[in-house]
């Protein structure tokens, strides 16, 4: 007598005949079970190329060979204690980078590079290495990440996690956007996860992922922005050219376009013309943008 709780499993593996199943379930069900068996045998799950050994092996840090221990027991304890004290204070200390009024090119100890925009702040533990790759960012930065363990950036509004790729983050506190220029990026914003691949961007304004034209982002002599609050871009120009720029407008404006990062006059035109702002220079460093 077949077990009532497992006879379908027995039929699927061939130890219960079609006739026996038909007696229990009827002809219509038998035909459907046959169809399920036949169709489900063609199911496949494609494994991504990133999981091939040749690709994955590039991320593996080299192992050091174990060294012989020759010191005495007492010396070992004392040395361990000193090392522990040293390590704990070492781990607690942070390395901080800022960029008051220029683009700061930072090379991290894992080989990754960061271009920190004016006004940005980046910090990580001094123990940052290929295994421990966590950073905090406020402001705007462009990252080119070397392969290794997950590279995690926490900013006021979200978390961005990658393995090896290139992308830009702007987090002003009120606005958060991530643009992926290479590889794949995982973005967490308000508890929701979005995955970006090359040419896709996430914005906190729309709370969704959009495809974008990457070409302007890859030109280093200009700054390209897509639907970014105007205040952010004005702040960047102010810091870059050491100016004090105020906007006289009641509306919220979003900037899309390029800004010349080397020429002050061109930069001022970029942020005023699209919105028909009149640029009034009050003195050498103070400007007001007034809505006409």
């Amino acid at each position: 007598m077949r077990d009532e709780t497992t006879y379908l499993a027995a039929w699927l593996e061939g130890t219960l005949s079609d006739r026996e199943l038909e007696k229990r379930e009827g002809k219509e069900s038998l035909n459907r079970y046959r169809k399920i068996k036949e169709v489900s045998s063609t199911l496949v799950v494609e494994v991504p190329e990133n999981l091939n050994w040749e690709v994955f092996a590039k991320q593996l840090p080299q192992k050091r060979k174990p060294q012989k221990k020759t010191r005495s027991w007492a010396f070992g304890i004392a040395a361990s204690f000193m090392v522990l004290v040293g390590i704990s204070s070492f781990l607690r200390s942070q390395k901080v980078y800022d960029s008051p009024n220029s683009f700061n090119q930072i090379e991290l100890s894992d080989g990754s590079t960061v271009e920190l925009a004016p006004g940005g702040l980046l910090q990580h533990q001094r123990s940052f290495n290929l295994i421990n790759r966590k950073l905090k960012l406020a402001g705007e930065a462009y990252f080119q990440v070397e392969k290794g363990s997950p590279f995690i950036i926490e900013s006021p509004n979200g978390t961005v996690e990658v393995v090896g790729t290139a992308f830009k983050i702007i987090d002003t506190g009120a606005f958060f956007t991530v643009i992926c220029t290479e590889g794949k990026v995982k973005v967490t914003h308000q508890g929701k996860i979005n995955y970006l691949t090359k040419g896709w961007a996430y914005s906190s304004t729309s709370e969704k992922v959009d495809e974008i034209d990457l070409n302007p982002y890859l030109n280093k002599s200009i700054g390209y922005y897509h639907k970014v609050p105007l205040e952010h871009v004005v702040g960047l120009v102010s810091k870059l050219f050491n100016l004090n720029i105020q906007i006289s407008s009641l509306k919220s404006h979003y900037f899309t376009g390029t800004i010349d990062l080397k020429d002050q006059e061109k930069a001022l035109r970029s942020i005023s013309l699209p919105f028909s702002f009149k640029v009034i220079q009050q003195n050498r460093r103070d400007y007001i943008l007034i809505e006409e």
Binding site: T6, L8, A9, A10, L12, E25, S29, R32, K35, I36
Partner: peptide, 23 residues
């Protein structure tokens, strides 16, 4: 193994019901 067979039985039973309703 018995647990696996029970889960498979349940899976097939549910699939049959879901596909039957749809048809």
């Amino acid at each position: 193994q018995k647990t696996v067979e029970k889960r498979m039985h349940q899976a097939l039973k549910k699939l049959n019901t879901l596909l039957g309703i749809d048809l």
